[in-house]
Amino acid sequence: MSAPILKIENLQAKVADEDLQILRGVDLELNAGEIHAIMGPNGSGKSTLAKVLAGHPGYEVTGGTATFEGEDILEAEPDERSQAGIFLAFQYPVDIPGVSIANFLRTALQAHAGDEELDLFEFQDLLMEKMDLLDMDPSFAERPVNDGFSGGEKKRNEILQMACLQPKLALMDETDSGLDIDALQIVANGVNKLREDNPEMTVLLITHYQRLLNYIEPDFVHVIVQGRIVESGGPELALRLEDEGYATWQSEVTEEVG
């Protein structure tokens, strides 16, 4: 068996400027092409895990390791991680007034291309192809990034960026939050289409609710509570969570701590 694409061992992290520990030793292995879902209650550290893996400056790693394709990524800048093939779909995408989606993506793809000059015609073709794949109107690309977007438009924009950047590992941070069921289906369909296009793409879904998993079926489900993965299993684990909630594990951990 080949080595995992992402290997996390005993990862610990805290809020950068505060004495607030969030991840307390996360262990996780993802093989190429797998879909993993991480579920947990509010404040369990599931979003923090995604942000730490992407290099968010608001968190400080206090222990453990994370390797992507065998390389330590924890010291790399966020742009270097992106260029290596990691993509974070934001829970709350940021607006950039005056910068069109096309310009933004062209700048990003140029950065990925390094010294090699990005062919603008090829870029245009790629953008149109991906927008077509995601059933998006071409005029969308001319709108300023997330500026005045609805919640659904912001999330679709995240999926479009993911489609264009073609990451090896997609970290999806509560992509389902704030979406109605129609928008959720559109976003989930987008992810599935990208997976059909590129079955090797590995996905880590961070979610609070089981409903997203009705549309994007995970290979593995992990439960995170108080900064640790407390149980892993197949898709049936998500269904169990839907019925039982997190109470079982929360009390276990509390007892352990107490």
Partner: peptide, 8 residues
């Protein structure tokens, strides 16, 4: 961070 997370 948003921009840098896209490789910029």
């Amino acid at each position: 961070f948003y921009l840098m997370s896209r490789g910029i």
